[in-house]
Each structure stands twice: as structure tokens, then as C-alpha cells.
Design a protein around this nucleic acid. Sequence first.
DNA 1: GTTAGCACTCCAACGCTTGGACTGCTAATT
DNA 2: AATTAGCAGTCCAAGCGTTGGAGTGCTAAC
Lengths: 341, 341
Amino acid sequence: MLSDRKKKILCAVVDSYIEKAAPVASKDIQEEYLPDCSSATIRNELSTLESMGYLIQPHVSAGRVPSEKAFRFYVNELMCESNLSVRETELIERYLSRKVGSLEEVMTAVTHVIAEITNYTSVVVKEDMSDTITAIKLLDLSNGKLLVVIVTDSRVLKDGMVDLPDDFSEGMIAQAQRWLNKIFCGKHVSEFINFDYPFALVNDEFAQYNALFKKIIDVLKKVSLANGMDIEMYGENKTLAHSEYANVEDARKFLAQMENKERIAEILTNDGGEDGSLTVKIGAEENAPEGCAVVTTRVSLGENVSGSIGVIGPVRMNYRKVLSVLDKISEIIIDLVGKGE
Amino acid sequence: MLSDRKKKILCAVVDSYIEKAAPVASKDIQEEYLPDCSSATIRNELSTLESMGYLIQPHVSAGRVPSEKAFRFYVNELMCESNLSVRETELIERYLSRKVGSLEEVMTAVTHVIAEITNYTSVVVKEDMSDTITAIKLLDLSNGKLLVVIVTDSRVLKDGMVDLPDDFSEGMIAQAQRWLNKIFCGKHVSEFINFDYPFALVNDEFAQYNALFKKIIDVLKKVSLANGMDIEMYGENKTLAHSEYANVEDARKFLAQMENKERIAEILTNDGGEDGSLTVKIGAEENAPEGCAVVTTRVSLGENVSGSIGVIGPVRMNYRKVLSVLDKISEIIIDLVGKGE
DNA sequence: GTTAGCACTCCAACGCTTGGACTGCTAATT
DNA sequence: AATTAGCAGTCCAAGCGTTGGAGTGCTAAC
């Protein structure tokens, strides 16, 4: 547990670093945040905070930089809330009021206005799991591979490939297919995604099927997830304007990560959360892209259709602003969808 | 008209520059391309080529760099054709054979494989002009503005706004609307795009309508173009890997240009061309993004649906490779679409 | 028309110096 | 025991001059 003063100092370091993108010196903290202490006292505290893992010193005569742990603590406990400026609120309303057309238009407008206000990359993911499964087919490619095909009422989802165990006969494949169909036909893709392997359904003497089932169901989940998803991204170069991407190599790394849409979609969606809930992921350890933080909110867009709205930026992100923008946006979207029904 | 030797030298400069991204010295040319001349002779020729506008010398003790004019000449007359390597051909086939699903899937696969092979940014634009126009409505917003709405059989295209001349009465607006409907209803959006202003249809006494008509039709063109278009881009970061974007400012400028999708789509589509035709635009003067070249091929994707496949890279682009890749891809796509029918 | 050779230009890289930004520590103070 | 003034020490970033080399243009000879 940190003393009050330590908290204040840590908060000062993070705030200053977010704003100035430069190591924070004890003197700066004294002058701008804690005029009642001497810089020497603050130095002592900084030293302790560093040994606790909250701060990093790039070199001996530099100030301190917050670690990812510090940002996490900041987001959880230190950060105070903020309101949007009038200008920002107006901007949001302007973008979203005129575009009450299709869901696609709204998605585009949302990414644009978020990127505009926050100066970070914005992503929206729509997951439509409202399709009903019509059939599941297993096709033996006779090279030891099995092609798994899902047919839904609106389209065919395919391309799933599974290695077939050696000793599988045609009959066994047919049997597996019958089971899968029995379990899943007529159900929504959404139920499917959340399905736990139904080992219980397979009685002991067919234990040999289990491994294959597990693989097939994994493939099916992946395929149907990818197919029901719609992702839109805007403002990659807004993020690049920040100083962490001052050299092109880092900028390219960032872009390369942004190009992997599946990965990004997964990051935005993999922890459910309720309507309007906010999630913050900081750094690669919390499964954000390397060097990045991702802030996400979820909105329901209808039965079995859900959306995730996210902001991706450097770990040194203006969390206060981003969180308040996402909060406002999700509120508007929820309202908008509510009315539409 | 350039002498044979000048052509050889110019070609050598361009080839070397494309490969090495560094100013080309007279000695290099002699050693690698023209061992029968002395470097002094080549220097004389280079000097002439420079005064003709084909070459640029960054500073007095540097070699020569090709101008945009030189690249243009190179593409038109000097460049020899090349074939894809086995590896590349296989790569293309691998990407495109498995993905015979929806048009969207194919578009994505095409951008990915092109970016992969060429190491430049790849764009695909689909223009779907197969909708039929159901109605055109003019809505007086009574603030001197007119909202123009197109309704098609598959969707409503809206958001077109026109300034209304002062002396326009309600009746005149209604009249204009009748005319527009008479002309366009039941027609394909595609006919519409290529429509020349039908002034002849409006007889003299209604000359006052002409200016408004011109504006309205412009808006309609723009709106329907934008709505029927689908653009997909991949590999922005591939282009950034090239040395012209070594400094961040230039890299960001490039990305900012890439973010203007409407502009990019227009560049790819604005000069029709037949199935399989190849177009090369070099530099801002030929309407490519600044500092960039754009190579485009067109493919028909069905009745009133056409696609443009493009590669965007620095002016110092490997045109040989890009052209041969696009040639191959368009051939495959045309084949694929042909079969599908 | 071609070429050898030389004088000249310019850049990019390197290393050196220097000012200053911070810290940690110590000893004095509250 | 906590705080603080002050000082010694560290390290960086920027500026600057030097230098080697890469190329050219020009001239005079072939």
C-alpha cells in the first residue's frame, strides 16, 4: 500500500509524462504538483517508487518514466475523471447525428470522430452471431486432412482444416459428422462460440473421437468468429504522430501490428463485458499490441449482435480523455440502438 | 529523340537507382552496364541528359538521379519485360486458389498477395454500378440549400447538398425534379455516371435551370460514385520500408495521403481502360499521390461491376516487377470471374 | 568523338568538447 | 525520524571542426 504522498507523486509523474512525453524530474514535480516538499524529499520518494517497480530511470542523470505497472495503477486508482470539452461534445454529436443511416455508416463515423478527438487509432468491431447453423460437413481430402464446412442460413463459412488421426475410417468421419449436426443444427452461431466441448455427450467407447472433436470445434469457432466479424479502423497515422514513433522502424512495427485485423478484433472482443463497460489493456503482457494500450467499450447492437469500440495508442496514452470519449460514445450508441428498435 | 547510347545510359541510371536507391555515378555505369566506354564519355552523356531534364544531380559531387520524366520514359520505352519467379507464381496461386469464396474474400486475398510480393501498398477498388435508379428527390431545406436524394432499388444514397439560386420557387424545384426523374428513372447508376449534362433537353426558356442542373448532376455523380465503391488497402507499412520514407515526416505524409480513400479510389478508377489494361501514373503531375507512383489494372467483375487493382509505391518503384505481378493477377481474376458466370 | 588526369566541390561520418540536466548522498536541521 | 540544503558525480545531446572519399567538370591530348 502506498502512502498518500507516494500516490500523489506517482500520479504527478504519470500525468506529466503523458503530457510531455519526457522523463520527469524531481524539481518539476515540486514546482508543478507538490510545492510543500523539497525536491530532495521527492527524490527520496522517487527512489523508493523505482525500487517498487513503478518507475524507470533511463539513465542515472535523467528523470523518471512510469512503468507499465505504474500506468495500470494510475488507471485503476489514481486517475481522476474528466469531462469532455464543449467543442468535443459538439464534434461527437455532429458526427453521429447526421449519420443515422446504416450500421456501417455509423461505424465509420464513430471511428472517425474518435480518432479526431483522441488523436489515436480507433477501431470498431461488429460481431454478428445471429446466423443459424444449417449444417456442418466434414470432407475427407484423403491426404490426412479433413475440411470442415459450416453452412448457415445466410452464407457458407468454410476453410477450416484439421489433421485427421491415422486410424480414422470413412464411417467414423460420418459418425462424427452426425454428432456435430445433432448438437449444433438449428442453433445460433453465438451459442456455438460459447460452447464447451461436449465430451459428456460422447460415451466412453468413443473416446478416440475426443481429440478430433476438440480440434474440429476449435476450427469451427475460429471460422465462424472470423466470418461474423466486421472490423473498421481509422487514424493509424494519428497514433504515429506521437513521439514514441519518432523513428520509422517503430512506426512500421506499429503499422504491421495494426494490419493484423484478426488479432486486433480478438483483442477488442475477447473479454465480453456488459453494455457500456470499459476495459483497459496496457502493454503486451495484458495482450495489447507491443508498446501499446487498448481501451475498449462494448455495446449491444441487437439480438446476438454486439459491437466493440476501441482506441489503440502508445502505453503513454491520455487515458482520462480516451475513457471519457469512449464513455460518451457508448452512451450515444446505446441510446441510438435503443431508439431504433 | 535520344541516341541509342543515351537510351542505354538512361536505362542504366534508372535500373541502378531502382535497385540501389542511391545516386548513380558515371563509373558505376561504365563498370556494370557499358564497359566499352570510358567514364568520361559517360559523364558527357549524363551532362546532356541532365540538361534535357531526364536527370537530376543532388549536388555537384554526387551522381545522377532520374527525374519523373526519366521514369516515365523508362516505363514507356526502355523497360524490358520480366517474368515472375516460380516462387512468386506459386504464392499467387496459393493465395487465390483457396479463396474462391465471396468477392470480398478475393479482394482481400489480392491485396495481401500483391503487397507480399511487390513490397508496396496494394489497393483494390470495386465499383458496383448495377443498381437501378428508382427516384430522385429534391428537398428544399429553406435555408437556400437543396438536399438531393437518390433512391435506388437496393438502397438510398443521400447527403448531396446544393446551393439554391435566390429566385427559385417551389414550383421550379418541382419542375426540376420532374425532369431529373424523367431522364434518369429506371436507368443504371452506371449510365448516370457517364451522362453528359442534358442541356439539349431543356429548352431555351428554361435556361435558368441549367446552372442548377449542372450542380445537381455533379452532386449526384459524386454521391452515387462514392456509394457504389468499395475500397480495400493493404501493406501501407511495406511501402514505408523503402528508403524514401526513412524520415518520419515523409512517412507520415505518405500515410496521410493513404488515408484519403476517396482520393485513392478516384486515382485508381478515373481513367477507364479495358479488361486487363495497365496504367502507370508517376508523381503528382500525373495525379498520383505526391512522391508516389500508382500502377493500375482493370478487371470486369460482371455486368456494371468493375474492379481496379493497384499498387502504390515511391516514384522509384520496381515497375518491371509490379507490372508483371499485376498482369498475372488480372489474368487470374478475369479467368476466375469468367468461370463463375 | 573519346579519354586520361587533375583540380575542385561537397558531403557524411567521426570524434571532441562542453553545457546543463538530474540524481544520490551527506550532513545539518526541525 | 523525517526533511532539506548543497555538492559531487554522471550522462546526454548538441555543436563544431576535421577529414577522407566519392564524384564531377574541364582541359589537353589522342
